[in-house]
Write a protein that binds this DNA or RNA. Structure first.
Length: 863
RNA sequence: GCCCAGGUGGUGGAAUUGGUAGACACGCAGGUCUCAGAAGCCUGUGCCGCGAGGUGUGCGGGUUCGAGUCCCGCCCUGGGCACCA
């Protein structure tokens, strides 16, 4: 027999329902609605030329299931999508082909959109956004200007990764092991003028506010570690050499101050020259050159072998006045703390190694508290454990935590130090020397013009001017007026950066060099005569662009009110939709994207633009789908699976179901092409059960509900219960297992009531929406299925009047009995005694103990 | 080196959080239907053993009537950080 039903044909069903949803605006989020809202967000994709691979729809399927489920639960659901479309690959494609990156980006987006639509995700396409759309990046630029005006953006000469082969600057994350991530070219450090955002001003709040977030612990920990708060003290060491300010160090262990036998400053420390004595000069210079030649990679590679050189100078310990030699060594980093440390070799691993190598004295100042009384073996140095102070005049005997407070207080009283907090977090390097990014809406003017602009009071400027100097000339930053945004990218002839490392925009002199009116924002070519009228100044535009992170820092806010022309979103929509109730995306963004977005969000909250100060209350990371070979999917390995192939062969519903059936959402799991058959068979089975030969309802479906077996009814209610619970907790794999159990039970049943059939199809709908709409319609329901209330389970159907009890003898399973649900231990024991197969184990034995757990186990302990 | 997650059949995974280990699915074997095959359906399938039975959740200990689950010590895999003073 071929089959008794019209075949399940995904290729006709799926496009039909996709058109139906689109034509009926089925997934449009309602503007004003009395319903409770639910906002489910995916991390929007970068539309690469390679198109989607099956990893993308894993997270998207999860959020789609939740969206459809929440709609059936009566929520007004916002489920949007968009494109994070600025970025390096499009730019490199442009360099190679000479075509505008926008052209290529648009083609990629069209391909991504087609692929995503083919999977039947219930996005509200009316709210689609694109970070490269001027109407979008106008607000990215606007946010930047708010940061600028509040002193949170500044320029600084910064060492950056420069790749000579690619002729471009690379971000840290684009450099792997000293090579460019793309192309594997060597990179080098170059100091270039950069825009930097003062994220460190928010370090404390970014850290403290993590606490209230419903995020994976590992992600919170990663952000904590990244922010890297440590409490300690700043200590001022006087210098023997006249005419120098104190040498300031940061330490987390001020209690060990009297054990400091030397100081170390980083090779880049500004005091290196000043502290180097004449006779040490040659050695120091040689060492400094050697350190400078090391790449960061080498410097960490050689982490174990410490090296350094004596400066010839001494500092004075502020507490006991001892002379302390000052060394220069690259194990001290200029980028952390003050770039100088007090070295306590007795109680620090690194200082100890260094002291050993250069035969510097080691003075122990902490001793385990019970050392002297108990005569425990003298601790090996370096000793970093708990204890009390020794050899510390005035502080000996104090517990180190007490000494820490006391020494810090004494230093403070003398003006020689104070308690401080240090962060590993650095300010955010925000500029890129690239074409395909948001132009930074700043122009540069000279000092006199800046002064007059400031005096005019017509332009909002930061309290401290942002400026830089080049060839002896100072340039001052002036914002482009908000209402002239967006500042669009000029057309350029070449997308290659200049050899000096400047952005390709620098080559567009007609765009860069201008007469500028700061109040109106008007500008014209500098090559023509200065226009008449008030306020015109000679200016040149900033040529750096923003990094890809910029557009993704706030995109979730735009979805709420995507067409708003006067604000990033209206206050009403921001209040109604709030922030996403669930945010799903890869763990690779655990730190940077999520930290940057939190930073911007807090700034926008502070200036009254947003009613909430954290963007993502609940976060979930989907795992990675590996190739068949267990390796990460990549073009090079040839193990990439395209969703297109699966949609064609098995359909979107099957792909969605399989992605969810593979394992827990958060797990890393390999793709197995054979496994997909299992879920496909499941869908065909469901189809066969409900659809008859003619394509109408199968004869098995009965309008007489009493024809349905009690067992099937019970299984249905177990399934409603489990699927509901699992969807709420994003455990889709077990939800699908349960639906398979139902289908298997159904297959063995003679009849199913129409209402039960409908309920089951409703459960399946979020997972496999196309087949479910089709079945729903065949069963007489009106599309779309999601507007019909989610089935509720009847708990009374799940209680049984008997219980199955596993019987163990001495912890070993020996059989099971079925007894009334209300049975107590005595009744259970009686039942066991009448069951020969179990009772035989008890003959002649003494019962020592009986453990009875109702409905679970009866364990009889015998001697 | 430090921090985190994880290790369960031939495979992906499940296990009510201390109570029948292996749900569901893949694969495999046998059967049914068929001229034949595909699909479907039925049965079996952790390992050892003909069997009774034994044994089994990375390894070694421990707690408990009872441990995949809790504790101690290792090993391995994946992720993050890495001279952070």
């Amino acid at each position: 027999m071929a089959t008794h039903s019209k075949d399940y044909d995904h290729s006709s069903i799926e496009p039909r329902w996709q058109s139906f949803w689109a034509d009926n605006g089925a997934f449009r989020a309602e503007e004003a609605s009395p319903k409770p809202k639910y906002y489910v967000l995916d991390m929007f994709p970068y539309p690469s030329g390679a198109g989607l691979h099956v990893g993308h729809p894993e997270g998207y399927t999860a959020t789609d299931i939740l969206s459809r489920y929440k709609r059936a639960q009566g929520f007004n659901v916002l489920h949007p999508i968009g494109w994070d479309a600025f970025g390096l690959p499009a730019e490199q494609h442009a360099v190679k082909t000479g075509t505008h990156p926008a052209t290529n980006t648009e083609a990629n987006i069209n391909n991504f959109r087609r692929q995503i639509k083919a999977l039947g995700f219930s996005y509200d396409w009316d709210r689609e956004i694109n970070t490269t759309d001027p109407q979008y990046f106008r607000w990215t630029q606007w946010i930047f200007l708010q940061l600028f005006k509040r002193g949170l953006a500044y320029v600084d000469e910064r060492p950056v990764w420069w790749c000579p082969a690619l002729k471009t600057v690379l971000a840290n994350e684009e450099v792997v092991d000293g090579k460019s991530e793309r192309g594997n070219h060597p990179v080098e450090r170059r100091a270039l003028r950069q825009w930097v955002l003062r994220i460190t001003a928010y370090a404390e709040r970014l850290l403290a506010d993590l606490e209230g977030l419903d995020w994976p612990d590992s992600t919170k920990r990663m952000q904590q570690a990244w922010i890297g708060r440590s409490e300690g003290a700043e200590v001022h060491f006087g210098l023997e050499k006249a005419g120098l300010e104190d040498l300031v160090v940061f330490t987390t262990r001020p209690d060990t101050l009297l054990g400091a036998t030397f100081m170390v400053i980083a090779p880049e420390h500004p005091y290196v020259d000043k502290l180097t004595t004449l006779e040490r000069r040659a050695d120091v210079e040689a060492y400094r050159q050697q350190a400078a030649a090391k790449s960061d990679l080498e410097r960490t590679d050689l982490a174990k072998d410490k090296s350094g050189v004596f400066s010839g100078s001494f500092a004075i310990n502020p507490i006991n006045g001892h002379r302390v030699p000052i060394w220069i060594a690259d194990y001290v980093l200029m980028g952390y703390g003050t770039g100088a440390i007090m070295a306590v070799p007795a109680h620090d691993e690194r200082d100890f190694k260094f002291a050993q190598k250069y035969q510097i004295p080691v003075v122990q100042v902490i001793e385990p508290s019970d050392y002297s009384s108990n005569g425990v073996a003298r601790p090996e140095l370096p000793y970093v454990g708990d204890g009390a102070l020794v050899h510390s005049e005035g502080y000996s005997g104090l517990h180190w935590s007490e000494a820490k407070k006391k020494i810090t207080a004494d230093l403070t009283a003398q003006g020689k130090g104070k308690a401080t907090i240090n962060y590993k977090l650095h300010d955010w390097l925000f500029s890129r020397q690239r074409y395909w990014g948001e132009p930074i809406p700043i122009v540069w003017v000279n000092a006199q013009d800046y002064a007059s602009i400031k005096e005019s009071g017509q332009v909002e400027l930061p309290a401290d001017p942002v400026s830089y100097e080049q060839d002896g000339v100072a340039h001052f930053a002036v914002p482009v007026p908000d209402d002239t945004l967006p500042l669009e990218l000029p057309e350029v002839e070449s997308y290659l950066p200049s050899d000096s490392g400047e952005s390709p925009l620098a080559n567009s002199t007609s765009w860069v060099d201008i007469w500028f009116n700061p109040a109106s924002g008007a500008s014209i070519l500098a090559s023509v005569e200065c226009p008449s009228g008030e306020g015109w100044v000679r200016a040149h535009r900033e040529t750096n662009t923003m990094p890809q992170w910029a557009g993704s820092c706030w995109y979730f806010l735009r979805y709420v009110d995507p067409a708003n022309r006067s604000a990033i979103a209206s206050q009403e929509t921001l209040k109604y939709w709030g922030t996403p109730d669930l945010y799903v995306g890869g763990a690779e963004h655990a730190v940077l994207h999520l930290l940057y977005a939190r930073f911007w969000h807090k700034v926008l909250f502070d200036i009254g633009v947003l009613p909430h100060d954290e963007p993502f209350q609940k976060l979930f990371h989907q795992g990675i789908i590996l190739g068949e070979d267990g390796e990460k999917m990549s073009k090079n390995r040839g193990n990439v699976v395209s969703p297109d192939t699966i949609v064609e062969s098995h359909g979107a519903d099957t792909l969605r179901l399989y992605l969810m059936f593979l394992g827990p959402l958060e797990a890393m799991k390999p793709w197995n092409p054979r496994g997909i058959e299992g879920v496909h068979r499941f869908l065909m089975k469901v189809w066969r059960e409900f659809v008859g030969e003619s394509g109408g309802v199968s004869e098995k479906v009965s309008s007489v509900s009493s024809e349905e077996s009690a067992e099937l009814t019970k299984t249905l209610h177990e399934t409603i219960n489990k699927v509901t619970d699992d969807v709420e907790n994003l455990r889709f794999n077990t939800a699908i297992s349960q639906m398979m159990i139902f289908a298997n039970t159904l297959q063995k049943s003679a009849k199913i009531s129409e209402t039960s059939a409908r309920s089951f199809v409703q459960l399946l709908a979020p997972f496999a929406p196309h087949i479910s709409e089709e079945l729903w319609q065949i069963l007489g329901g009106r599309a779309p299925i999601q507007v019909h209330p989610w089935p509720e389970f009847n708990p009374s159907l799940l209680v049984s009047d008997t219980q199955k009890l596993v019987v163990q003898i001495n912890g070993k399973r020996r059989g099971e009995i079925v007894i009334p649900a209300s049975a107590d231990e005595v009744a259970a024991m009686n039942a066991v005694k009448t069951k020969e197969s179990i009772a035989s184990y008890l003959t002649g034995a003494t019962i020592r103990r009986v453990v009875y757990v109702k409905g679970r186990i009866l364990n009889i302990v015998i001697a």
